[in-house]
């Protein structure tokens, strides 16, 4: 946004919808009608009326030598009909004070112009001032709807392509590895990696149930890295058609008594962590419930390695169920 626009207050920004965002993102040339039927100024109104009726127009730009000189609308023709005079040139009745918009302006500029003026259509000019199209409120509605639909289809397409990944690549053993670095104490981004992992699994064709179970397990592991480590750690997810292996590892301080750490309700978290809704001593228990196999290896000198494995051998659960 440039300086000439007033700053958007936080209060206002809260209520901005995707459609409103699109009104700023989309440019007028993306939604306008091109190949506009133009009229010369020296034809009779009678003839213009015929064209309007035949082509079902409600307005048309008037042009001489490629330059926009006016706009004639159905309202102008009605005025002429009222006075019973259709035997005059279009130039007599056309609007000459034409309000135009530029092709690269955001759609919101056209919307503002519509509400400021009473025009139903606005000619669209290029940088040189040549007419390149015309925009109506209907064009804007259509453009916004198409763009919203495009947003929706983009995700579908990503999902479709990703879910065919394992079919398209031939090897003896294909796997996809996702890696995330998790910083100690980074509560602001806590869960970010897990959300991305869950989304990736869905795109790769995992069922919502599998993605949810993996998501919960890896989220608990991610929060453990944020809360309990010396320097944070890493998440590594290996995706294979029949198996998802998730690993969380760090370089300390290690878990003194692994058996005890696995007991529900056992926690070493501080009150501050508990106030954030974590540290109830349920993390590892939750993980164990969610995945098919879990291994926790920890020592005071080497830190902690947590392996979480989900098998997709069930026919409905494999990532590509061809054949």
């Amino acid at each position: 946004m440039t300086d000439e626009h007033p700053r958007v207050s936080d209060e206002f920004a809260k209520s901005i919808t995707r459609t409103e965002e699109l009104a700023y993102e989309l440019r007028i040339h993306e939604v306008m009608s091109e190949n506009v039927h133009c009229l010369p100024p020296d034809i009779k109104l009678e003839e213009a009326l015929d064209i309007f009726q035949k082509e079902r127009f409600s307005g048309a730009p008037v042009i001489t030598n490629g330059d926009l000189v006016g706009l004639i609308s159905i309202e102008d023709l009605i005025r002429a009909l009222r006075s019973g005079n259709l035997d005059v040139n279009v130039s007599e009745y056309m609007t000459t004070k034409v309000v135009t918009v530029h092709e690269y302006d955001p759609v919101v500029e056209a919307l503002k112009t519509f509400s400021r003026t009473n025009f139903g259509r606005l000619p669209v000019l290029d940088k040189q001032g040549k007419l390149v199209g015309i925009i109506t409120k209907g064009d804007i509605s259509n453009g916004l709807l198409t763009a919203l639909q495009r947003d929706y289809h983009a995700e579908e397409l990503i999902r479709y392509r990703a879910s065919h990944l394992f079919e398209d690549i031939v090897s003896h053993r294909t796997s996809l590895i996702l890696r995330y670095e998790i910083r100690k104490g980074d509560f602001i981004h806590g869960g970010n990696a897990s959300s991305n992992i869950k989304r990736a699994l869905l795109r790769l064709g995992a069922t919502p149930q599998i993605a949810r179970r993996c998501g919960i397990a890896v989220y608990e592991a991610e929060m453990n890295l944020i809360i309990h480590t010396n320097h944070g750690g890493s998440l590594r997810v290996e995706v294979e058609p029949h198996k998802i292996t998730m690993e969380a590892y760090d370089d300390g301080p290690g878990i003194e008594d692994v058996e005890q750490a696995m007991k529900p309700g056992y926690s070493t978290a501080t009150n501050e962590i508990r106030e954030m809704g974590f540290g109830a001593g349920m993390g590892l228990v939750n993980i164990k419930r969610c995945v098919d196999e879990m291994r926790l290896i920890s020592s005071r000198d080497r830190g902690t390695n947590l392996y979480m494995i989900m098998y997709l051998d069930d026919k409905d659960n494999t990532l590509n169920t061809v054949n």
Partner: peptide, 13 residues
């Protein structure tokens, strides 16, 4: 509870 983790939790669950 009122922090970004609630939304992350919502997303995961």
């Amino acid at each position: 509870l009122c922090n970004p983790q609630v939304v992350r939790t919502a997303l995961i669950a």
